[in-house]
Amino acid sequence: MIKNKKVILVLFSLLALAVLALAPLIGMETISFNSILNPNLDNIKRDIFWRIRVPRVLIAFISGSALAISGMTFQSMFRNSLATPFTLGVSSGAAFGAALYVKVGILFSILGVAGQTVFAFLGALISIVIIYVLSKIKKGFSVGTMLLAGVAINFFFSSFILFIQFISDFTQSFSIMRWLMGGFEIVGYSDIYNILPFILVGSTIIIFLSTELNLLALGEDIAISRGVSLSKIKNILFFATSLMVSGVISVVGPIGFVGMMVPHISRLIIGADHRYLVFLNIIFGGAFLVLCDTLSRVLIAPVEIPVGVITALLGGPFFIWLLIKSSNNNQVI
């Protein structure tokens, strides 16, 4: 095991760069470096590379980073690896908001932010408020109860989404369903510009609060006694997380389990010091989702498997493994 945390970060950055460089070349159409660099060769391949593959890989990377640090933040706040925006129902809230937008179909934007993102954010906020109120009114709410509440919130919003699909016409219904599976097929550069501000603001906040996250991981009473203004810090963290999760989900759909697997594995690799952990999550989360997306393109090519299906196939067993591992103790972090 490498002890030096900075070395770990550098190694993972190099790995991530390699993934970023290679992933756009792989797919239904294999592209060689040569055909991108040489302007006289094969225009179609270059177009595929620059217009389709590169934005796709970039958005997969920033989505993965955002989902990973959101997951990390929730895990640390609730001191449990099973508590993530996805399992606690924030993602399904955002999904509900975005699906509602597809159905209502009013094209609008606020200050340049796409309507779907705004709706997703509001949906995420509803879930967050429910979780927040639950954790407030019942002091000492166990994480187990919290997760059950998350299951309930998930069911609740899933049935809303089903209802929206039911009253939608065929094309709307299909586009909602396809989007719910999560994927990067139809994204372009504009989507990146759309969600990048959300993710930059959210992750900057979390990077600045990494010492507070370290203290929260010790338990709330200790954090308060060390001088953390608990409610204020938690509110800011909830806000930052909803920003990022809803930004990502509004564009690429509710991709699950990345925010559970990546932070948990990152903790095992680099330890619990959030000053390093947050950066490993950014690097590793991004690279992980790019890899999953690449898999989704090549596994049964020419058919593309939605990337959400892949992360869920990996994440389901992982969740159960965590549950078994933690069965004698409520804390998994």
Binding site: R79, N214, N329
Partner: peptide, 12 residues
């Protein structure tokens, strides 16, 4: 403040 001894996980 030194809280009651707990079996909590302190990952440091």
């Amino acid at each position: 403040y030194v809280p009651q001894i707990s079996e909590n996980n302190f990952p440091f």
